[in-house]
Design a protein around this nucleic acid. Structure first.
Lengths: 93, 93
DNA sequence: ATAGAGTAGTTTATTTTATAAACCAACATC
DNA sequence: GATGTTGGTTTATAAAATAAACTACTCTAT
């Protein structure tokens, strides 16, 4: 059986990637609200995705507030496509 | 976002259920070979699925050898259908 | 009869992962 | 000048997956 990329096969990381696949970019606060995750958990999982090169993050200051925004990389998009493909075998779609 | 049933959102358990959805029943050895899992891991994960009432197992002796065979329950089939449904949101299918 | 290897598992221990709790820095509000 | 808020990160704890070790039995060859 095909392996399911463990980096994507995690509820929160999958949710993050799922959201990012649909938009140019999304910021930390939006992702936190959309996924319902705690900030700590989100921070950790974003790091893992960034470490793997699946997403790219940029940290800037808007006025006095920090703002982290994220977007998919090509590597990430490919990994997601592969994951979906592999998963279809499991789901019998 | 819809929650992904954590019992099914595990590579090995999903593989087990995926196989069982396609057949009347399958035995331990078949599942071990088909999934490539170690016997220990398989034993643990089958227990969890049985505990949750997603699968049913029967242990009998065929000649002198033990034989554990597994099949889906209605509860399990419903859970799998729900899981697939929820996952489609994430996969954008 | 017994040592060695194989089958069919289970139990226990270890590692990995996910989650939550605590914390930091900067600001605004009372 | 406490008190709370926003936007995070770091660290600690809980939960999960995996691997290693073990049980019980059988079969073969010595």
């Amino acid at each position: 059986m095909r392996e399911l990329d463990p980096l994507l096969h995690s509820e929160l990381r999958l949710a993050i990637v799922s959201i990012l696949m649909g938009v140019e970019e999304a910021d930390f606060v939006y992702l936190r609200e959309a996924t319902g995750a705690t900030a700590g958990n989100l921070s950790v999982q974003l790091d893992k995705l960034a470490q793997a090169g699946y997403i790219e993050t940029t940290k800037e200051f808007v006025g006095k507030k920090p703002r982290t925004s994220c977007r998919m990389t090509d590597t990430g998009r490919r990994a997601f496509a592969d994951y979906v493909d592999a998963l279809k075998e499991y789901l019998r779609l």
